[in-house]
Amino acid sequence: MKAILAVAGLALLVAGCGETTLARPAMPTVVVRPTQPTSGLERVMGQNAAGLTQLFGAANADVREGTARKLQFQGTFCVLDTYLYPGKNGGEATVTYLDARQPDGSPIDRASCVAALARRNGGK
C-alpha cells in the first residue's frame, strides 16, 4: 500500500512540474488617437492671420516660435488660442489647431468660444 501511495504521489509531483502552454491568438495592434470634434470650427480652421483678425479683431497676444505662430483672442466669455503652421512647401501659415478655455482656466467648448468671440466683433 505504501508503494502505491508513493508511486501516486510521485506521479502527481512529476505532473505538476510539466509546463503547458496554450497558444493565444494574435491580437492586432490598434492605435486609437482621440480626436476633438471640429464641428462649429469651420470658420477658424484653415484661416490665415488676416482672416482671424477680420473675424475676431486684433489679437490680444501674438507669439512666434520658429515657423509656428499662436494668436490669442480674449473676451469676457472665453480665451481662444489659435495655432498657425506653414503649409507644405513653405506656404502661408494657417490654423491647424485651436484651444479654448474660460477666463479662469476652466474648460469650455471650442465652438462656443469661437461663436462668442465672433459676435463681439460683429461676426465679420
Rank of each mutant, 00 (worst) to 15 (best):
A118N: 00
A11N: 10
L117W: 00
P34V: 10
A26Q: 10
N89M: 11
A23R: 03
A115E: 14
A118F: 03
A115M: 06
Q72E: 13
R69C: 01
G16S: 15
Q72R: 07
N60G: 13
V30A: 15
E92I: 11
T29N: 13
Y85V: 10
P86Q: 14
V31Q: 11
G9Q: 12
T53D: 10
A100K: 01
L117G: 03
A11R: 15
P37A: 14
I108K: 12
A6S: 11
L12Q: 12
G57Y: 06
D81M: 02
T21R: 07
A6M: 09
S39A: 13
V114N: 05
K88Q: 12
R69N: 04
V95N: 12
K70H: 08
G75S: 01
P28F: 05
V30L: 15
L84G: 01
L41D: 04
F77G: 10
L71D: 00
N48G: 11
G57V: 06
A118S: 10
G51L: 00
A11F: 13
Y97G: 15
G122S: 06
F77K: 06
T38V: 10
N89R: 08
G123F: 14
G87M: 00
G9A: 15
T76C: 00
N60D: 11
T67M: 11
R33A: 14
Q36P: 07
Q102P: 10
R69S: 03
I4N: 07
M1G: 09
G18Y: 10
A93F: 08
G40I: 03
Q74K: 04
A93W: 07
L117D: 04
R64E: 06
M27R: 10
L10H: 09
A111N: 00
C17H: 08
R43D: 09
V31K: 14
A100I: 07
Q36E: 14
D62K: 02
G87L: 04
Y85S: 13
G122E: 06
V44Y: 02
T29Q: 14
R43V: 06
A100E: 10
L84W: 01
A59S: 11
A49L: 09
L55C: 03
T38H: 11
Q54T: 15
G123D: 12
R33H: 12
K124S: 14
G105M: 00
V31R: 14
G57A: 10
R69D: 01
A116W: 02
R24C: 05
C17F: 07
T96N: 13
P34F: 07
G18R: 06
T96A: 15
